[in-house]
């Protein structure tokens, strides 16, 4: 169920702003910066869940993690790299950890077995 679809985000933002046509951040097609040294890829089973991470090309996709994508059981986990090199994810957004693998493990801890919902498809 695409609870966080781009269309819904835009609808909500429009509702808040009256009839104005808007561009919210989720709809931006900005390419992530590629000047960071991306962490190495990983692939492991943690607490029974398969967590994977790899540098990604970005290419207008939603990867705000400085060109790095993470998944839990094959479903993308939205991650983000902070200016100091620490990481957060959409399920642990106020608590930076040192690596994307640590963010994936923190997500598995937080999910307690629940299934991650797919992050909305990139704006095309």
């Amino acid at each position: 169920m695409p609870d966080l679809s781009r269309r819904r985000a835009l609808t909500a933002a429009t509702a808040l702003a009256g009839a104005t046509v808007l561009a919210v951040p989720a709809a931006r097609a900005s390419a992530p910066s590629r000047d960071h040294d991306a962490p190495a890829a990983f692939d492991e089973v943690y607490k029974g869940r398969r967590i994977q991470g790899r540098p990604s090309s970005g290419g207008g996709h939603h990867h705000h993690g400085g060109g790095y994508s993470v998944s839990v059981d094959g479903v993308e986990l939205h991650v983000m790299r902070n200016a100091d090199g620490t990481w957060i994810s959409v399920v642990s957004h106020y608590d930076p950890v040192s690596t994307p693998r640590a963010a994936a493990r923190a997500a598995v801890d937080e999910l307690q077995g629940a299934r991650l919902l797919p992050f909305p498809a990139p704006a095309n």
């Binding site: 985000a9 909500a12 808040l16 919210v24 951040p25 989720a26 709809a27 931006r28 900005s30 983000m80």
Partner: peptide, 27 residues
Amino acid sequence: GRYDDFVTTHNAFIVGDTDDGERTGHR
């Protein structure tokens, strides 16, 4: 249904606001 529109807007900004890109609601 109005409540959930606020949740959606907040999440759109929190995943869209980045340290090296456009940032409005956070950081």
